[in-house]
């Protein structure tokens, strides 16, 4: 498949009540350009799925949304990304509060080598969200409950987080992200290291979290995109090809590349 020339995104890339607005975003690793001119809205309280073949730039784009790419020295971002109307790449913006507002869950569960309690309490502590031990206990309990992990771990809050199963670890990481009370949660293939049962639990959780948070999820599983998201964005070789309501993308895709991907002709 060749790169499409006109850089035009099919479908409805913009929405009425955007939380995050990406405008003409390009990402460069040194000389090499990984993302080309992507413009996309992410609506408040929606789950948007970013899909596409490996190396299409969907993870790179996701990592732009909370400036995680800053940790890579040679990475450079052009264009602008607005969170509630404010450009997060503005020189005045401090990444620390930004990442507290836009949290991230990673592909591989990465609990810190600390107790379950301290894993959750880490974020609130560094941001000074709890004013007392009781406050902190409450945040930990609430976060674990929202992540659907409370009943499984309430008796062993002080045993190491690394001792949990893969699925539990990933829910722990989600609870950890929720604990700093973000507005947006970015998920980078959160289920790719998990078995189907753990995956089902996380998907259920994502659906519940939508009430309070805006979620962008990168996934390789089209079934997962279909199950959890309201809108789906299809990336191909660093370009945003098509954005539409999820039902529409999976039944009547506008672009031939999208159709080729979802029908399994490549990917």
């Amino acid at each position: 498949m060749s790169i499409i020339e006109n850089h035009k995104t099919n479908g409805a890339a913009f929405c009425e009540n955007p939380k995050l607005k990406a405008r003409n975003v390009g990402v460069f690793y040194g000389e090499k350009q990984a993302i080309f001119d992507v413009s996309l809205d992410i609506g408040a309280n929606e789950v948007i799925a970013l899909i596409g073949p490996s190396g299409c730039g969907k993870s790179t784009f996701l990592r732009c949304l909370n400036r995680m790419n800053d940790t890579i020295d040679i990475c450079h971002v052009s264009g602008e990304i607005l969170l509630d109307g404010e450009n997060i790449y503005d020189t005045k913006v401090d990444v620390v509060p930004l990442r507290a507002r836009v949290g991230m869950v990673f592909q591989k569960p990465n609990p810190f080598p600390k107790s379950i309690y301290d894993n959750i309490a880490y974020g609130p502590r560094i941001h000074g969200l709890a004013h007392s031990r009781v406050d902190l206990d409450e945040i930990v309990e609430k976060s674990l409950q929202r992540a659907g992990l409370w009943n499984e771990v309430k008796d062993r809050l002080h045993s190491p987080g690394t001792g949990l199963s893969g699925g539990q670890q990933q829910r722990l990481c989600i609870a950890r992200t929720i604990a700093v009370d973000p507005e947006v949660i970015l998920m980078d293939e959160p289920c790719s290291a998990l078995d189907p049962i753990a995956t089902a639990k996380i998907e259920e959780l994502i659906d519940e979290l939508r009430e309070n948070y805006t979620i962008a999820i990168v996934t390789h599983s089209m079934q997962q995109a279909a199950r959890v998201s309201q809108r789906t964005a299809y990336f191909h070789l660093g370009q945003l090809i098509e954005v539409n309501p999820t039902d529409q993308v999976f039944t009547t895709p506008e672009h031939t590349l999208t159709e080729a991907y979802i029908t399994g002709r490549f990917g």
Partner: peptide, 27 residues
């Protein structure tokens, strides 16, 4: 120490020194 642990910490809005002190050194 896996980069994923550092990413996890940065993703929560931790600064570099917090990440080093709280996550990297304990690991």
């Amino acid at each position: 120490v896996p980069q994923s642990l550092r990413d996890g910490s940065y993703g929560l809005g931790a600064t570099k020194s917090e990440t080093v002190k709280e996550v990297v050194i304990p690991a």
